[in-house]
Amino acid sequence: MNTRVTPAPVKHSIVVDAPIARAFKVFTEDFGSFKPRDHNLLRVDIAETVFEPRVGGHVYDRGVDGSECRFARVLAFEPPHRVLLSWDISPQWQIETDPAKTSEWEVRFIAESEARTRVELEHRKLERHGDGWESVRGGVDGDKGWPLYLRNFAELFARKG
């Protein structure tokens, strides 16, 4: 029995008390200020996260030692309404160099009023990452898939201060 299914996109939305232009500007220019600190594939701490505001640009972390981790490519940049990026991190937590094996995330900004903006995020095409995005087969009996998941999970919830 082939039980492979296409994963549903990850979707989130949030309404912020800010005009659309500011909502877009903060999201792109200050991405590094709110991206979770525990999201880091470098061996060292992150000095800064850069979001290059143009199609063909990258989003990357720069480590305190100058090393870089380019984890997203800018596929569309349409201020103040929309950005579309790739997600170049494999399920094995490494940079994926084959664009055909990367998923994509889109952020849409919708003005609800002059002072409020709805921000919708959709991370889709997860199946393009290949094996690993999906459920861990046989994981119920404690195979090797779960420890990795739990480690990342624990880091995600690491209680900080």
Binding site: H12, R22, F34, K35, H39, V119, Y149
Partner: peptide
């Protein structure tokens, strides 16, 4: 989904922090 679940949490945290920033 291992990765999907992680991304779900990641984006939730990111957007919450974004709201505060903006």
């Amino acid at each position: 989904g291992q990765m999907r679940a992680w991304l779900d949490q990641f984006w939730s945290k990111t957007l919450t922090a974004y709201k505060q920033a903006v």
